[in-house]
Design a protein around this nucleic acid. Structure first.
Lengths: 229, 229
DNA sequence: CGTAGCCTTGAAGGTGATCAATGTTTGTGG
DNA sequence: CCACAAACATTGATCACCTTCAAGGCTACG
């Protein structure tokens, strides 16, 4: 683990206020992995021997249905964990595939370190709980939008992503994000997503270049999200 | 806390193998509450001072949307916890209302006991993690059914409930469950739910009496759930 | 006996899926 | 360097599923 990664980790909310040596303990045996576009960090069905923290880039959690369709269960932004909940189970396999969107950098932490260090650190237990809480809240929020119209659901997805990336990056999404992926994430067809989004493009609400989406009018998206269209 | 409750608690998966004195410690300061039909265990917005374990009956987690519609985020069956995740946060309010379906009996455990006893008990931490894992898995499963047809989603909801209640109860749901509630849970309109379910009634798949649903043909429901209709 | 809560049915309409065809860009191997 | 495949974006036409609206019936309960 290099110095640049260490300083990056220290800035994530989960590790704020932690002294360097404590952080190093938490990452004992950890390995850095650089992922290329569309490369898998974890494959669904493999036995779970490590969990991961996303340092840079973006990931998606994907489950392929028997019908051949993909469902994106969630996107992952820097500072968020993947497969964390699996670590507290004796034996388990990854329930979804974790795939990089664009180039990403993750740090994989062995299950053993989780058991021996993470679960012994009261502050970390607290922080992990907060992250899990956020995850459940996100999933519940998702359920609340179930009956909302397609534009509402797409708007919410985009707003959520922009906010999670929004550390001075402004309102553009730094990873390639296709219409198909948005469709898989909100549970819609590509064509419908395209129809909604090209309208937004024409109205200047957002702008896509080379699969990178830039939101010009967050206010309008937020308004649509709330159902005032 | 009476003896009959204690023996009931000891049988729940979360407490299997725990000696009686340990269980008593975990429930220090706990109070039993009997709920009538439609009575609230917790009200959305109130500050969270306790969490609860359902002993008998059934609960629903409900969020009212600004539009006036209700969304049922999840049903709760005996042995499951409510508001458990909130306990690890410094200050918080209940994000949803918890309402009894028929008569229920819950045991409310003060936040303080959670902090002082539950978080100090390694086995309990492990068990709690398993429960949270199950909850997240349930929510993710939900997301996977997003694109499924209405009959599929309803079938899944019923199968899930029957299985969770299924401790020798056979295949009938022991609490009043209205079509409106099913609609709120699967994100559909009452009328659509009625249309689907009356067809099932006619075909003898299930049978409703006094708002208690009895499933005669679980096999058919499971088949529909998987999309072979 | 009137109200409240729930169930039911029919008709009309819309949202979004599906199917089909085409253009564009990117990546790849000969 | 070109040919070809793969991935992605787009547009139009059609259609099905589900919602919405409207009306009415049933049962329980004060």
């Amino acid at each position: 683990m290099e110095q640049r990664d260490l300083t990056k980790v220290a800035k994530f909310s989960a590790f704020l206020g932690f002294p360097v040596d404590e952080i190093e303990g938490l990452f004992a045996g950890a390995t850095i992995q650089n992922l290329k576009h569309r490369e898998c960090a974890y494959v669904a069905g493999d036995t779970a021997q490590s969990f991961a923290l996303l340092l840079e880039g973006a990931l998606k959690l994907v489950k392929s249905l028997p019908s051949g369709e993909d469902v994106i269960l969630s996107f992952v932004t820097p500072g968020e964990f993947v497969a964390l909940l699996l670590m507290s189970r004796e034996i388990s396999t990854y329930p979804v595939s974790v795939i990089s969107m664009g180039e990403s950098r993750v740090i994989k932490i062995p299950k053993r370190t989780y058991a021996e260090v993470w679960t012994k650190n009261p502050t970390m237990i607290q922080r992990v709980n907060n992250l899990i809480f956020a995850r459940v809240a996100e999933l519940q929020q998702n359920k609340l939008m179930e009956k909302a119209s397609l534009p509402q659901r797409i708007a919410r997805q985009l707003v959520s992503l922009v906010e999670r990336f929004g550390n001075g990056n402004g309102t553009n999404l730094p990873m390639p994000l296709t219409r198909q992926e948005i469709a898989d994430a909100v549970g819609a067809s590509v064509e419908s997503v395209i129809r909604v989004m090209s309208q937004w493009s024409q109205q200047g609400v957002l702008h896509t270049e080379d699969q990178r989406i830039e939101v010009n009018r967050m206010d309008i998206l937020e308004q649509i999200m709330r159902g005032q269209d």
